[in-house]
Computed example of a mutant assay.
Amino acid sequence: MTTRTTPTRSTQVQLVARPQGWPTHDDFRTVIVDLPELGPGEVRVQNEFVSVDPYMRGRMNDVKSYTPPYPLGETMAGGAVGRVVASTAEGIAVGDVVLHQLGWRDVAQGPAAAFRVVPELPGVPLSAHLGILGMTGFTAYVGLLEIAQMQPGDTVLISGAAGAVGTAAGQIARLKGAGRVVGSAGSAEKVALVTQRFGYDAALCYKDAPVREQLPALVPDGVDVYFDNVGGDHLEAALDVMNRGGRIALCGAIAGYNTTDRVPGPDNMAKVITQGLTLRGFTLGDHMRHYADFARDMGEWFAAGQIDHDETVVDGIDHAVDAFLDLMRGASTGKMVVRTGPRG
């Protein structure tokens, strides 16, 4: 077994109650766990960053979905990146940077198969492996290019433009030859950000007026591809302006994640028929065969300085719930992560 100075306890955040509407701190607890000695083929990892993501809200509900709900009384699962501090596994050494899905904890331990070694890129924070270089960037890539079949010259509309997936999707659309990229965001500052840094030609603030009223002026020639992270009023507004044969990738519906009432559906679904539209939902597990293409393209763009990325960092595993609630309220820009390791 190889080791460096290694922690023997892990601080973890667990779900203890199913949220009704908006989650509260009472739905979670923080525990400190004594770690056992490493068994054969195991590793111990000092996490540096833990991911909080919108999909986690759905897993807090005890409903059938594409992935099982979070069990009560267990540590929240999700993406994390850290550095190996002890290993009895061949192929994973102390000091290696690894990704895993063991979630909201400052120290992770388990079999080697639960961890994937990733490169440490000069000048790039490890958190990028949770965002633009990881599942966030891959979500944008799959949604645009596989699900919506974006073509050069298309007008592309993206809701949640200032979020982690939205900032990636705007840039990928531009790099893949979109004719016009338009988005929605939650403040004037975020509108300025996405148009100045993340590939958008124009954007609207959905808090200024109904999206349905604002959108037509931004897309006078209609929309060919809509990447939906929001649902609700955004989907309704998009249906109004879709061109014939348009394609809609349904990635998320954050507008309804925390409501206790039924979210009204669009009143213009007849557009799907009259315009010959395609609406297709997706989750990444069905599309991992495209990961090699994503890794190749994103690696080339990143090396060439063609991709920008942003993140909101909250310090301390004990503030993971705060970070998640801020994310759900739209208080973050780019990828939201919790820093569990030292400042770098």
Results as ranks from 00 to 15, higher is better:
A178Y: 04
E74F: 08
A93H: 07
A89K: 02
T260Y: 08
R180C: 11
N258R: 09
H234G: 05
L239R: 09
L72Y: 04
D224E: 11
L144E: 06
T24Y: 04
Y70P: 01
R29P: 03
G299H: 09
L327F: 03
A173E: 04
D297W: 07
A202H: 09
E300F: 05
L215R: 00
D308N: 15
N61Q: 14
A202Y: 03
S184G: 07
G276A: 12
A292H: 10
L239P: 02
N258H: 06
T136A: 11
G186I: 03
I172F: 14
D96V: 10
D34I: 03
D96A: 13
A192R: 15
W104G: 01
Y206S: 01
Q151P: 00
K271M: 15
W301M: 11
K207F: 00
L15K: 00
T167V: 12
L102F: 08
V337P: 01
I92A: 04
T333I: 07
F115R: 04
M135W: 03
P220V: 12
S159I: 08
R329V: 02
M135Y: 02
G316S: 11
V84C: 05
S10K: 03
A178V: 08
G91D: 04
G163M: 08
K335H: 07
H290D: 09
P19L: 08
R9Y: 03
M242H: 07
E146V: 13
I172R: 13
M298E: 08
A86K: 00
S332C: 07
N268K: 13
L126S: 09
I92V: 08
G21R: 14
Q109V: 05
G186P: 01
P68E: 13
P23N: 13
V142K: 13
G281H: 08
V118Y: 02
T6Q: 15
V31D: 11
L277T: 04
G245Q: 13
V223N: 05
A128M: 09
V124L: 11
R289T: 11
V124M: 14
T30A: 14
S127R: 06
H287G: 07
A304D: 12
L239K: 08
T167R: 13
G252C: 06
L102A: 07
V85Y: 03
G110H: 04
A185I: 03
P264M: 11
